[in-house]
Design a protein around this nucleic acid. Structure first.
Lengths: 340, 340
DNA sequence: TCCGAGGTTTAAAGCGCTTTAACTGCGAGT
DNA sequence: ACTCGCAGTTAAAGCGCTTTAAACCTCGGA
């Protein structure tokens, strides 16, 4: 009674072998129409559902994709949602493994490996290229959101420099020159954006205005940076943050300090997370098209698994700037002192 | 080369049977110290890692907890983090199954069942009690965050009426009478809070002031409700929202309408999500102690699995009000018209 | 009537691990 | 000397499914 029906049970009820039942249930060719009908009927009556664990073991193929994510990230949430949808569509199962305070990337990835995923998708991994490369030697790896220089790691990432450049162009177009950047910390993704900022400023002829404030990808980090900037004597007229959460923190600090956004300072984020574009933040930010990234990533994995692709794949998607209410022209000089 | 080492490989290398290796690797009693050492050494050299799929199949026990969640919910993220930590601690593995736009509760739960989880933890499930009860007949079920009346379903939930009551007491203590409630939609959790509001108002002698505005658990829902309230001729002096995201939306709508929070309207949320207490929202809200809920839930599952508990368990945790900056005394009558 | 082709069905060998009962020495007890 | 007990070790039987090779069964053609 506490046992779920097994293949045997279905087979016995129909009076055929387990092999036939297995064939029918997976829609494999072989069994006759009549057999199919009866098996399907019996299976339905018994409420039979295959034991994935056993199937996975028996089948060489497991049709399992592992996804490493940070469950606290709204952007990852979006990606996962799309990955699930795409995987469902093509008949793959997804197993999620999240980072937590007590569970670092290595642990999270090991968990996926222990499940014998056929491929792993890593959302914004921070591991060294070297580490990813050696992982890729064991199992197909798709890194999402960052560049990976060495090894056989597939990559799906937005062109961070393009996103940052567009944002900068938007700001300079509005008349800003003193544009600071709030850093995203030591992560690889953060590094790409920082770099994009540096390059973009140089290209815009604003090399002497480059100013990078320490921060991280959380609201706290943004708040700290925002406080610093708010108190700074030569406050920038615009601030670009390494992601939305950070940008929200920056805005928070500004508003509390009595500095109006975008009246006195413009703020730009990165990610276009649901979080940011709803709250009264109304943040100008860079959209990365989670759905497209997810589709490409799943596709990359499946190409390796089902189509035997061997060469490395790198998909670079162009992000696009979404202009909202947190940016505007810089204040006229006399206005600017108001906030001090 | 592309094959991971198996138990056989380790056994062969040491010159013992696979049984011994298995025993050693799981720390089971039996093998001698000498054997242990050599096996461990060989396993390390080969980089051996057990195949969970195979172990799960072979072992009657799988030590697997399934968790159904909505990956978009920050509160669920917190719970999952704590559940992971707790499970790690006691040697259980966790498999996550998320709701998405194209994947409802039934699908998400089926996925967990297919993995043959030993027990499932459901975060804020919306399924009917009946449905949960029949699920519980197959596998131990712990519902987190809501009440379940029938069936053998364990429940870990905050005392919603207490949370709401405390919030109401806080508001009436400040002098509010016209306290509206923005509803959380059709979910079961939302229903509990709505009910808590009704009861609380009655008990406070404010039955005639009961006012429930349609909404849901997202910022959008809050914004819609907020707009309605902002435009209302008899605007309440305080608004309690069904969760933080909703509260944030309400505040957003107010602020955009030029109504100050808490100057003209006080707003209270529910969840104390990281989201809310960082952003310049600075929301007064009800904290549900995710860590405690997670611990109790895991414990409940483990008691069923390892200690043979049979009777139903219901843990009701007292939430506590966290007073922040979004609440204050109601405006004096002459001030109030200012915002109209 | 016999044979082979083709369409169905199935026996049986795994998949990689766990677990139990049985087995092996070996020193202690009688 | 002989049994007994015990620590250590292992053979072997699964776990529930997939898969392959072989068996089986018409049925038409020679």
């Amino acid at each position: 009674m506490d046992q779920r029906p097994r293949l045997d049970d279905v087979a016995a009820r129909v009076g055929v072998s387990t092999a036939s039942v297995s064939l029918v249930l997976r829609g494999a060719p072989g069994p006759s129409a009549e057999t199919r009908r009866r098996v399907l009927e019996a299976a339905a009556e018994l409420g039979y559902r295959a034991d994935r664990t056993a199937s996975m073991l028996a089948r060489r193929r497991r049709h399992l994709l592992g996804v490493m994510l940070d469950i606290r990230s709204p952007f990852h949430a979006e990606l996962v949602e799309e990955i699930q949808a795409e995987a469902d569509r093509i008949g793959y199962e997804v197993v999620l493994s999240t980072l937590t305070r007590h569970r670092d990337e290595d642990r999270a990835i090991e968990a996926l490996l222990d499940f014998r995923c056929e491929a792993v998708l890593l959302l914004g991994p921070d591991a060294a290229d070297q580490r990813l490369a050696s992982l890729a030697a064991q199992v197909p790896v798709v890194a999402i959101g960052r560049r990976v220089a060495t090894g056989d790691v597939d990559v799906v990432r937005p062109a961070d420099h393009v996103g940052v450049a567009e944002a900068l162009a938007h700001l300079t177009g509005l008349g800003h020159h003193r544009i600071a950047f709030v850093d995203g910390g030591r992560g690889v993704v953060a590094a790409a954006r920082r770099r994009g900022y540096r390059d973009g400023m140089r290209r815009a002829g604003l090399a002497d205005q480059i100013r990078i404030i320490a921060g991280d990808h959380t609201e706290e980090g943004g708040i700290r940076a925002g406080r610093l900037l708010a108190a700074s004597p030569d406050r920038p007229t615009a601030v670009m943050a390494s992601n939305d959460r950070c940008a929200v923190g920056v805005m928070d600090a500004f508003v509390r300090a009595g500095i109006e956004v975008p009246g006195q300072v413009s703020v730009v984020g990165y990610d276009d997370s649901t979080l940011a574009h709803l709250v009264h933040i109304d943040l100008t930010t860079v959209n990365q098209d989670a759905a497209a990234q997810a589709r490409h990533a799943v596709l990359a994995a499946v190409q390796r698994l089902d189509e035997g692709r061997k060469q490395r794949l790198e998909v670079v998607l162009n992000p696009r700037l979404v202009v909202r209410g947190s940016t505007g022209p810089p204040p006229r000089p006399e206005d600017q002192s108001l906030g001090r």
